[in-house]
Design a protein around this nucleic acid. Structure first.
Length: 442
RNA sequence: CGGAGUGUAGCGCAGUCUGGUAGCGCACCUGCUUCGGGAGCAGGGGGUCGGAGGUUCGAAUCCUCUCACUCCGACCA
C-alpha cells in the first residue's frame, strides 16, 4: 500500500481525551475514530489489526474443535425471559422496541440464543459433545466506558459455548478451551496469565480469567514468579487426549495467581515464597466458565441418553475480547515513539521508507523493492510521500510495523538499504539485491 | 449512579473574569529552496465559538435551560 494513496489520518499531537497509552496511540496512528462514548469506527489500519487478531482466535478455536456460527446482534426478549436474565441483567443491557412494539435487545452475550439453537438441533446423546462459537459485536451499556477500545460499549467478542452429556465431559471441554486460550495468546505475542475467577453458586475450579500484565490494567493481580519461567509456547497438543489436555491445565493452575477480587493474602504467603511473590496490574482479555445446566435447564436443552431417558446438557461459555486485545497488545508492547506490533498482528509486514521521494534514483529503487515485495505476497506499507525524512521516521515508528526498510541516496550510492527492527532499534545494512530475500524467507 | 471537569478551524490551545464584530501553534493548499530523525521563506484557505432561549445598540464572553464528551469512584469481554 502506498501511503500517498491510503487513508491513515495520523495525529501529531495527543488528543486530550485519551488518557492511556493504547488509546492515545490508536488515535494518533489513525486506527480508530470515536463516534460516541465507548463506540468507535475502525479505520483501515486498525481494522487490519482487528481482522488479524480475529483470524488467529478463529484458527485456534477451530483447531480445538469448536465450530463457527454467526448469531444476530439483535435478539428477542423472549428467550431472556425464559432464562430469567431479562430482569436480572439490568441497565447494562440495551433494550429496544421494534415497530410492532416487541421487546428486543442488543445482545450483550449469547448463552440463551445458542442454547436454544442447540436444543432445537439435537435429540440424541450421540450429538454431543459440541462447541459452537461466533465472533460478533456485542453491546453492553457500560456505566462508564473508558480507555478507548479497552472498555467500549460496543465491542467485538469471540464467545464459544460447549455442550456435554456429563459434568465430567464438560470439564474436558473446559480444559480444551483453556489450552486453546494459552495457544491463542501465545500466538498473539502475549503472556496472558490464567487466574482463578469467581465461580458463583456452581463452585469448583470452573472459571478462569486470562490477564495480560500491563500497568494500565483495571485489575490488581497477584501471582507466582514461576509463571514467567513457564513454557508459554503454543502447545502442540492432541485435543482428544483427555489426560494430556488436563496436564497442561494443571500445570498452569498449580501456581498461585489471582485478581484482587479473589486474592487471599494468607494463602499467597502459604503457597508462594516471599521472593517469588509478584503483584501488578492486569487487563482481562479472556474469561472461561463452566456453568453446568444453568441455561440448559430453564431452556429445556436436553437429549435422549443411551438408556432412553432425557438428560439435561452441561455447558460452559468461553469469551475473548477481540477488540479489547487490540488495545491490550499496545499496552503490553509500545515505547515512547509509538506502537511495537508483534509480527502476528501487525497491520503490515514491513514499512518501506523512501527518504527522498521525488529523487529519480530513490524513487526507482523504492518502487522496485515495493513491487517486488508485493509480488511475493509481502504486505508493505510504502511511505512514498514527499515529506522530510524525519517526519517519515516518526510516522513509521508511531505506526509500529515490526520492520522498516529505509531507502536513501546515501545508501543507494553503495547499493544498500537500511533494515531497522522496530522493537530493538537494531539497524543493518542489506544489499539491495538481498532485500527481497530477507523478507520472503519465512 | 455519586464526585470533578471540558466543549472556540482537522489536532492542541488562547480569548470568557472586565460584552465591541474571533486569534496562535501544528496540520492543510500554492510557489521556490530543501531533504538520513517531525525543514525554511513567501503567499493562501478554513470556524453555526456544542445547541436552544433570554438580557443588550451589540454576546464566544452575562443569565436560564439543554446536549455531548473526559477523568476519579462502585460494576465488567
Amino acid at each position: 500500500m502506498r501511503l500517498s494513496q491510503y487513508f491513515m489520518p495520523i495525529l501529531r499531537d495527543d488528543p486530550k481525551e485519551a488518557e492511556i497509552v493504547s488509546h492515545r496511540l490508536m488515535l494518533r496512528a489513525g486506527m480508530i475514530r470515536q463516534e460516541a462514548a465507548g463506540s468507535y469506527s475502525w479505520l483501515p489500519t486498525g481494522f487490519r489489526v482487528l481482522k488479524k487478531i480475529e483470524q488467529i482466535v478463529r484458527e485456534e478455536q477451530d483447531r480445538a474443535g469448536a465450530i463457527e456460527v454467526l448469531m444476530p446482534t439483535l435478539q428477542s426478549a423472549d428467550l431472556w425471559r425464559k432464562s430469567g436474565r431479562y430482569d436480572d441483567y439490568g441497565k447494562e443491557m440495551l433494550r429496544i422496541k421494534d415497530r410492532q412494539d416487541r421487546d428486543m435487545l442488543f445482545g450483550p452475550t449469547n448463552e440463551e440464543m445458542i442454547t436454544d439453537i442447540f436444543r432445537s438441533g439435537v435429540q440424541s446423546y450421540k450429538d454431543v459433545p459440541r462447541n459452537l462459537y461466533h465472533i460478533q459485536w456485542k453491546f453492553r451499556d457500560e456505566v462508564r466506558p473508558r480507555f478507548g477500545v479497552m472498555r467500549g460499549r460496543e465491542f467485538l467478542m469471540k464467545d464459544a459455548y460447549s455442550f456435554d452429556l456429563t459434568a465430567e465431559a464438560g470439564q474436558h471441554s473446559y480444559n480444551k478451551m483453556f489450552v486453546a486460550y494459552l495457544r491463542t495468546f501465545a500466538r498473539l505475542g502475549l503472556k496472558a496469565v490464567p487466574m482463578r475467577a469467581d465461580t458463583g453458586p456452581i463452585g469448583g475450579d470452573s472459571s478462569h480469567e486470562f490477564l495480560i500484565l500491563a500497568e494500565t490494567g483495571e485489575s490488581g493481580v497477584y501471582f507466582d514468579k514461576d509463571f514467567h519461567d513457564m513454557d508459554w509456547s503454543a502447545f502442540d497438543i492432541d485435543y482428544d487426549d483427555v489426560a494430556a489436555v488436563e496436564k497442561v491445565v494443571k500445570t498452569f493452575t498449580s501456581k498461585y495467581s489471582a485478581t484482587d477480587e479473589k486474592h487471599d493474602a494468607v494463602e499467597f504467603d502459604m503457597r508462594v515464597p516471599k521472593q517469588k511473590q509478584l503483584s501488578g496490574r492486569g487487563i482481562e482479555v479472556g474469561h472461561i466458565f463452566f456453568f453446568g445446566d444453568k441455561y440448559s435447564k430453564p431452556l429445556g436443552c436436553e437429549v435422549q441418553g443411551a438408556d432412553g431417558k432425557k438428560v439435561t446438557l452441561q455447558s460452559g461459555s468461553y469469551g475473548i475480547g477481540v477488540s479489547r486485545l487490540v488495545g491490550g497488545i499496545i499496552e503490553a508492547s509500545h515505547d515512547k515513539d509509538g506502537i511495537i506490533w508483534p509480527e502476528a498482528v501487525s497491520p503490515f509486514d514491513v514499512g518501506l521508507i523512501n527518504i527522498k521521494a521525488g529523487d529519480a534514483e530513490a524513487d526507482a529503487a523504492s518502487d522496485k523493492i515495493y513491487n517486488a515485495l508485493k509480488a511475493k505476497g509481502v504486505d508493505v506499507l510504502y511511505d512514498d510521500r514527499n515529506q522530510p525524512g524525519g517526519a517519515k521516521f516518526a510516522a513509521m515508528d508511531l505506526i509500529g510495523l515490526p520492520w522498516q526498510i529505509i531507502i536513501g541516496p546515501r545508501g543507494l550510492k553503495e547499493g544498500i538499504a537500511e533494515v531497522k527492527n522496530r522493537k530493538t532499534g537494531a539497524r543493518e545494512n542489506v544489499a539491495l539485491d538481498h532485500i527481497i530475500g530477507r523478507f520472503t524467507k519465512v
